[in-house]
Amino acid sequence: MVLIEKGKWVWLLMLGLVLCSNFAIYNTNVGNGILPDDTNEVVLGSLLDLVILLPILFMLYQRKFTIKMAVLLTAMGCILARFLIPYDFLEPFVAVTWAGIAIEAALIVFEVLLIFMFVRYVPQIVRTVSSSKLPVIFSFPHAVNLYVKKNPIIHMICSEALMSYYAFFSWKKTPPPGMTIYKNSSYMAFQIMMIHAIVIETLGIHLWIHGKSTTLSLILLVLNIYSVVYFLANIQAIRLNPIYMNDRTLFISLGLVKRAEIQFDNIESIIVDLEILKKKIPKDTIDFIVRDFAKVDPDMIIHLKKSIKVTLFMGIQKECTKIAIRSDSPSELKHAILERINNRLCKR
């Protein structure tokens, strides 16, 4: 695993070398000095680098290979060529770059259609969420996936919609009963402190930056407002979403930061050995541990038979085979999980 993690940086280094070398050839005095009179072969080589080699290196670095990603990266390589290669050199191959722009435009139109589809189904999504027994942080993504095709853009919209709901429309809600993961920590105080720091920074520094650069001050103002809204939403999301369980699944979330659905049939074992829990959490483990000012260890690590996808902020998904949890009621949580596992075994 360590060798794989180190190896992926080789691909990133090679990607950087490809970009830098192609930039240097056309945009530095040294590069211009070694260009031949007939530049077509050099430009063709650069196009192969940007359209074929660059996407391959990036996918090797990400360790993720999909047709959609390959098409998207190839189109981006075509567009990048228009910026790196002077037009006089690129003119014989300009059709290639227009093809890239056309592909990008088609993908953008497709994403926009998905957004319109999402907006169209909002009433049905709201009704589905209202009738669901699951917490909103889980029922809303389920409802979206039910009506709209899964897509990274839709995942981002879903994440932003959840943030808006918890930041502006959830303050009259009371937390449901259940086991929590934040009450035995200073996490909420830490979040409030961050909000205060952002507000003070905005008031104190914004005026000074505004005198230097109006554009930069507006960008920082928007980012600070977004950060405050995010922290407020995250506080509410943690308060209103204790650990939830039904007969089949454990639903656990750390506010808007991450959430997971763990099938009881997929649990292989639960580790509660203190010596193991005090060790560094492995890389194939996603933790649901509230951190503030002090280092804390999990109460248990759940080993899974098959990997699951944990949803992170902005809808990003990450696979894992172990879940580390620190709760306010570790014994009660362990007992509840084991009870449901046994019930599932008895029903077989």
Rank of each mutant, 00 (worst) to 15 (best):
L90N: 05
L53T: 13
T249L: 09
G178N: 03
S46G: 07
L73V: 03
N151C: 05
T180Y: 07
A260I: 08
G255W: 11
N27E: 06
V122W: 09
T215K: 10
I205C: 00
V96T: 13
L73P: 05
L113C: 11
L54K: 02
L345N: 13
T180R: 14
I101L: 15
S227H: 02
T321F: 09
L134I: 01
H335W: 08
T321W: 08
V94C: 00
F93T: 01
T214I: 14
S170Q: 07
T39G: 07
I323H: 03
I301C: 00
F264C: 06
W98Y: 15
T311L: 03
K334C: 07
I270Y: 06
F23V: 09
L80A: 15
L254Q: 12
A233E: 06
I270E: 07
I108E: 00
L304P: 01
Y187L: 12
S253M: 04
L162P: 03
I34A: 13
V257Q: 10
I301V: 15
W98D: 14
M1S: 14
C346G: 01
K183R: 14
V71S: 10
M14R: 00
Q124V: 01
I157C: 11
P177A: 13
L15F: 15
Y61Q: 08
D292E: 14
F313K: 03
L90E: 02
Y121D: 13
G33R: 11
K183Q: 10
A294I: 00
A81D: 08
L84Q: 04
E41R: 09
Y165L: 10
V112S: 08
V296G: 01
F23L: 10
I337P: 04
K173W: 04
V43Q: 12
T39L: 04
F293T: 11
L48Y: 12
L203P: 05
L35K: 11
K305T: 11
V148D: 05
M69D: 14
L338A: 02
E41A: 15
L107Q: 13
A324F: 08
V96S: 09
V18P: 02
T174F: 01
T214K: 11
K173T: 08
K334G: 04
I281E: 10
G33S: 15
P177Y: 02
S185F: 03
L19G: 02
N234I: 03
L232C: 13
I337T: 04
D328G: 05
I200W: 00
L19C: 09
L84S: 00
G31S: 08
K279E: 13
W9F: 13
I108R: 00
L73H: 04
E5K: 14
G100K: 06
N22D: 12
I281Y: 04
E339W: 06
L72G: 08
K64F: 02
M59W: 10
L240E: 10
H335K: 15
L333M: 11
V290H: 06
I85T: 03
G77Y: 06
L17A: 15
N342Q: 12
L53S: 09
T74E: 07
V112N: 05
L3C: 02
S21I: 12
E111H: 12
